[in-house]
Design a binder for these strands. Structure first.
Lengths: 246, 246
DNA sequence: CACTGAAGGCCCGATGCCCAGACCTTTTTC
DNA sequence: GAAAAAGGTCTGGGCATCGGGCCTTCAGTG
C-alpha cells in the first residue's frame, strides 16, 4: 500500500489555509454584524426604519427570535431603538451612538484587512471599467463634487466616500462583490477612525477619485487598477504611521 | 418623533445586499467543503495522508465527532479512505473518484462566480506585483515551463495551473487571500470541467501566464491587472458558449 | 370612545448541531 | 506479548435555533 506523501509535498502555507480553523459564525452573530456594519457605514442612515420584524426575519431567512436577539444587541449598543404600536418599528438611532474603539485583534491584523480591501477594490475597479454604464458614472461624479464640498465635515465626507466606493461595486452588477465590499469597508472604517484626516489629504484623495472615475469611464482597466491601488495605498501609509508594525 | 426615511433613500441594490439571507454554514458543512475543495484542486494530492483525527480536529477547532462526520461523508463520496491501526490514517483516494457534475444552482449563477474570481484574481495580481519576491517568481516560472510540457495531459495541466494561481496568491503574503482563491477556484473548476480544452487554447493561456509573471516581476501593477483580466476573460468566453446566458 | 390592525415584546417546547470525553478495535513495532 | 498509534463507537449535555402562540402598545377609524 501506498503511504505517506507520495507526490511532491505542498508548500506549508497553502496547507495552512486548508487546515486553518473553521469559524462557523452563528446566525445571531452574522445578523448583528450585517446590520451593525450597514448602520456604521451609513447604508442604513440615522432615522431610517427597518422592515417589520416579521418581514425582516423572512428576508434574512432566520427565525424571529434569532432576529430579535440581534436587534436587542444592537439596541443595547445604542445603534437601534424600537417603537411599539401601530406605526412603530425599529429605527436607526439618531444621533448615532459614540463610536467604539476597534477590537485589539482587528488592530493586530490591520495589514491583512488592508490587503483584502486592496484585492477586492482593485478587482472591482477593473470589472467596473469593463462594464460600468455612463448614467451610473454620472451619479458617482456627482458624489465626487459633493465630497469636495464636505472637506471640513469629516463624518459626512466619510459617508459620501463610502457611497462612492459601494456605488462602484454596484456598477459591477455582482451582488456578492457588493457584499464583500461592505464587509471589508466595515472593518476598515473602524481603523480609519483612529487616524486624523486633514482637509488637504481629503482633497487629494478626492482627486484620486476623479482620476479613477475617468479611467473607468474610458474603460481603461489598467489605469483603473493603478488609480485604485494608489488611492488605497494612501490610507495604508497613514495607518502605518499610527498602528503597530506587523 | 422622526419617522420613516428622513434621509435620501438608498438605491435598492445596496439594501438588498444588507437584507440578503444569512447563510450560516455548519461546522460540518464547512469542513466537508474545505477538505473536498482541497482534494479536488490537488492541494491534497492523491495518496496524501491527512493529519491524525485527534490532531486535525484541534487544528480545525472542532470536535472530533464533527470532524468524523465530514471524513465519513468524504469517504462515502470516494474522496478519502481510512486505514486503521498503527501507521494507518486517512488518505486521499488514489485514483480520484469520478467527478460529479456541478450543481444546477452553480451553473445558474456561473457569471457571478466568474465575476468574483475576476475581482479576486486581479486584486491578487496587483498585490503580487507590488511585493512578490524573485525567488518565488522563479518557482512560478518553472511551473509555466512544466505546463508547456503538459498540454496533452489535461488533468495534470489543470493541477499545475491551479498551483500557479495559488502560488501567486501566496506571493501576496495574505492568508485570507489564499483562502479566498481556493474557494473561488473550487467553484470554477467544477465549471471548467464542462468545457473542452484543446491544446492550442492551453498553449495560448500559458503564454498569458508568461506575460502575467513578467509584469509581476517588473512590479508593473497595471500590466499585471490587464494580463490577468485578459487571461480570465479567455475562460469566460469559452464558458459563455457552453452555458446558459444569464 | 371603543374597536381594530399593525407593530414590537415575551415565552415555551422541540430539534438538531456540536462538544467533550471515555472506551473499543485494529495494526504495527519493539 | 506489550506498547503505541491510529481509526471506530457511544453517551450525555449544552446551547443555538426554530416555530409558534400570546400579550402589550398605540394610531387611526367609525
Amino acid at each position: 500500500m501506498n503511504r505517506g506523501a507520495v507526490r511532491a509535498p505542498e508548500p506549508a502555507s497553502s496547507l495552512a489555509a486548508v487546515f486553518a480553523p473553521v469559524r462557523s459564525q452563528t446566525a445571531f452573530e452574522e445578523t448583528v454584524e450585517r446590520l451593525g456594519t450597514a448602520i456604521k457605514l451609513g447604508l442604513l442612515p440615522a432615522g431610517a426604519r427597518l422592515p417589520a420584524e416579521r418581514e425582516l426575519c423572512s428576508m434574512l431567512g432566520i427565525a424571529r427570535s434569532t432576529l430579535r436577539q440581534a436587534l436587542v444587541a444592537l439596541g443595547q449598543s445604542g445603534h437601534l431603538h424600537a417603537m411599539r404600536g401601530r406605526g412603530g418599528g425599529t429605527f436607526v438611532a439618531d444621533p448615532a451612538p459614540p463610536t467604539s474603539p476597534p477590537s485589539p485583534e482587528l488592530v493586530a491584523h490591520w495589514r491583512e484587512v488592508c490587503d483584502e480591501r486592496m484585492a477586492i477594490e482593485v478587482g472591482i475597479a477593473v470589472l467596473a471599467a469593463e462594464r460600468a454604464r455612463p448614467e451610473l458614472l454620472d451619479s458617482l461624479d456627482a458624489l465626487v463634487v459633493e465630497i469636495d464640498g464636505l472637506l471640513h465635515d469629516y463624518p459626512a465626507q466619510r459617508q459620501a466616500d463610502i457611497h462612492l466606493h459601494v456605488g462602484l461595486a454596484e456598477a459591477t452588477g455582482s451582488a456578492r462583490l457588493v457584499t464583500a465590499m461592505t464587509e471589508t469597508q466595515g472593518a476598515m472604517s473602524d481603523l480609519i477612525l483612529l487616524i486624523p484626516h486633514p482637509p488637504e489629504v481629503l482633497a487629494s484623495s478626492n482627486q484620486q477619485h476623479r482620476r479613477l472615475l475617468d479611467a473607468v469611464r474610458r474603460h481603461d482597466e489598467a489605469a483603473a487598477a493603478r488609480e485604485m491601488a494608489e488611492h488605497l495605498r494612501g490610507t495604508e501609509h497613514i495607518l502605518a504611521g499610527f498602528l503597530p508594525p506587523p
